[in-house]
Simulated assay, not measured.
Amino acid sequence: MANKQKQFDIQFKKDAVKFCEDHPDMIHAECAAKLGVGNSTLARWKREYKNNNNEVQFRGSGNFSSDLEKENARLRRELKNTQKDIFLNLAFESYDSKSAMIHMKVSSRIWMRTNFH
């Protein structure tokens, strides 16, 4: 079974960092355990918070450095899906044409056999 990572939204990350700040009596491991996240994950969130002048700038899943990069990735996915759809449609049209031609050939041979023998 694949090991799927949990994905946390931005609000949860903000709240987790705030929870640690609001509970200085708890050690880091206790905070992480209470929140249900790994020690290193919580440490990274706190470090990012501290490095961004106490502002939370978590990008969420995908780790894009800007909204422009995130939009480019979305457009690339959309283009790839569109290309796949076009390819599949052409493949099915080609298949339908070939099968129709084969059907016509077989039908004409059967017709000729039945009518000229």
Rank of each mutant, 00 (worst) to 15 (best):
N52G: 02
F64S: 03
Q5Y: 12
E93Y: 11
E93I: 13
R74F: 02
K70C: 05
L35Q: 01
K105C: 09
T41P: 01
H103G: 11
L90A: 07
C20V: 06
A73E: 06
K14D: 00
D85E: 14
Y49M: 07
F12Y: 08
L79N: 14
N115Y: 07
N53E: 11
S65W: 02
K4N: 12
K18L: 12
E30M: 02
S99C: 07
G60K: 08
G60P: 01
F19D: 06
H117N: 07
K6E: 04
N52I: 03
Q7G: 05
D96P: 04
L42A: 01
K98L: 15
L75M: 10
A100P: 03
K14A: 03
K50G: 03
R44F: 04
A43G: 10
A29M: 01
I10N: 14
I102Y: 09
S108I: 09
K18T: 10
F12S: 01
N54D: 14
F58C: 05
G62W: 05
A2L: 10
D67G: 07
N3S: 09
D15V: 01
A33H: 10
D67S: 08
F116C: 09
E78N: 05
E55F: 00
N51L: 10
D96R: 14
W45V: 00
S99M: 12
N51C: 03
A33C: 07
A16P: 00
A43F: 06
V56R: 09
K18G: 00
R77Y: 03
Y49S: 10
V106C: 06
K34Q: 09
C20L: 08
T114C: 09
L88C: 06
N53T: 05
D22H: 07
I102N: 13
R113A: 15
F12R: 02
D85R: 14
S97L: 12
S66R: 04
